[in-house]
């Protein structure tokens, strides 16, 4: 009896540790984020090319590096479930464009800045990890930027960016949930409102 209990306990322990172990290659995840930021800084922000060319290159990099289908689904929250396939598609599309246009306008702020990478932190979500980085500032302490990376089919994608402990995905989710709650137009009203911001 005692043996059985022990065996059961050992089995449970193994299962727990098996689950807890992040199934993601931390080093490769860090290298992925470093490559993306280097590419962005060298070939877009600091590159001697027209703004139009910069915007095009950025849109391409953004779409390759970030999993917008995944993020878009998360930020819509429980409203994703009740949304029609057309609404889902349109929302993702608008959310993608909004993000691209927002970040494109802010290239100048990143001029002369660089990311110093500080290892990774495990996530409780399967196949995901946090890549930690710091951006030195002109004054005061460096800004902390954390990249949430997801590995799927041996390919890495960024699924969240956390600046000074503020997750862009959680913020957008809270914001959109509040908007839909207070608007009879629901998801359609949200999509219409976001369109005015692109």
């Amino acid at each position: 009896m005692k043996k059985n209990v022990l065996a059961l306990f050992a089995g449970m322990l193994m299962m727990v540790s098996g689950i807890a172990k992040a199934e993601i290659n931390d080093e490769a995840a860090l290298k992925f984020v470093r490559d993306v930021t280097n590419d962005g800084i060298e070939n877009i922000i600091n590159a001697n090319i027209s703004q139009k060319e910069k915007d095009e290159r950025f849109a391409k990099l953004f779409n390759e590096a970030l999993d917008l289908d995944f993020i878009g689904q998360f930020v819509l929250g429980r409203n994703w479930r009740t949304a029609t396939p057309e609404q889902r598609k349109e929302f993702i599309q608008v959310y993608r464009q909004l993000n691209i246009s927002t970040w494109s306008k802010r290239f100048d702020e990143f001029k002369g800045k660089n990311f110093e990478f500080k290892g990774t932190t495990a996530s409780n979500s399967k196949g995901q990890a946090f890549v930690n980085s710091e951006v030195p500032m002109d004054q005061g302490a460096p800004a902390k930027v954390v990249w949430r990376v997801r590995e799927k089919n041996e390919k890495f994608k960024i699924v969240d960016i956390i600046i000074e402990n503020v997750s862009l995905a959680i913020t957008a989710r809270n914001e959109y949930t509040a908007f839909i709650k207070n608007n009879p137009g629901g998801v359609d009203a949200l999509i219409a409102n976001l369109k005015t911001k692109i």
Partner: peptide
């Protein structure tokens, strides 16, 4: 509101100071 609350959650009780768990690690699986 969301940004303020998230930013404040980085301040930790001394008992959790060594915790490696990220405060922004919500369940993010689809």
């Amino acid at each position: 509101r969301s940004a303020y609350i998230q930013n404040q959650s980085k301040l930790r009780c001394w008992k959790d100071a060594d915790s490696n768990e990220a405060t922004y690690d919500f369940d993010f699986g689809i």
